[in-house]
């Protein structure tokens, strides 16, 4: 009885949290905030889901614009099959070859050692705007907050750059 009750309460709480999160994220996107959430993973990894809305753009255009900005994101540069991750001194920068997969709905970038992956997707937000979303994972023997900073700045920077041109 107690277990069933506990599960029910947990489920309700989870649903409530999801509902709250969903609606508040949408509101924040409408307010033009770039939002992101992190989750801890095992073995020196952090994961991020982040997104931002861009006006006067379709999802396909958002992905196309993203491609033009890949070489010069905030702390990440992707060019000629290589990803350069710019870390603050006293850490050394990271250079890693990447595989890129592109289709109509998404751009997947994966480091060949499996330690970093960036998946960009885009979806229509309202009549006139689209949301660019990043699902990223970054594993490395360094404090989580540094990895989080790299991933969060990646989505913030690319959304701002596309906004500067589009809206």
């Amino acid at each position: 009885m107690n277990i069933a009750k506990g599960i029910a309460i947990t489920l309700c709480a989870a649903l409530l949290l999801c509902a709250c999160k969903g609606s508040s994220d949408e509101t924040r996107l409408k307010r033009r905030e770039i939002i992101y959430h992190f989750s801890d993973m095992k073995e020196d990894c952090v994961a991020l889901f982040g997104e931002g809305a861009i006006r006067n753009i379709t999802p396909a255009q958002a992905l196309a614009d993203l491609g033009e900005n890949l070489a010069d994101l905030r702390y990440i540069g992707i060019e000629n099959g290589h990803m350069h991750i710019d870390l603050p001194w006293p850490y050394d920068d990271i250079d890693v070859p990447v595989n890129m997969e592109k289709n109509a709905d998404a751009l997947h970038i994966k480091g060949i050692y499996g330690k970093i992956s960036l998946s960009f997707t885009a979806y229509a937000f309202d009549e006139n705007s689209a949301v660019l979303r990043l699902d990223g994972k970054f594993c490395h023997a360094m404090p989580d907050l540094l990895k989080e900073n790299v991933l969060a700045n990646c989505i913030k920077n690319v959304v701002k750059k596309i906004r500067n041109v589009r809206d």
Binding site: P88, W89, P90, L145, L146, N149, N153
Partner: peptide
């Protein structure tokens, strides 16, 4: 700690 290196890190974290 080295305050110069720590300043660089603080700048990074606080953007």
């Amino acid at each position: 700690y080295h305050a110069r290196d720590a300043a660089v890190m603080k700048g990074h974290l606080l953007d």
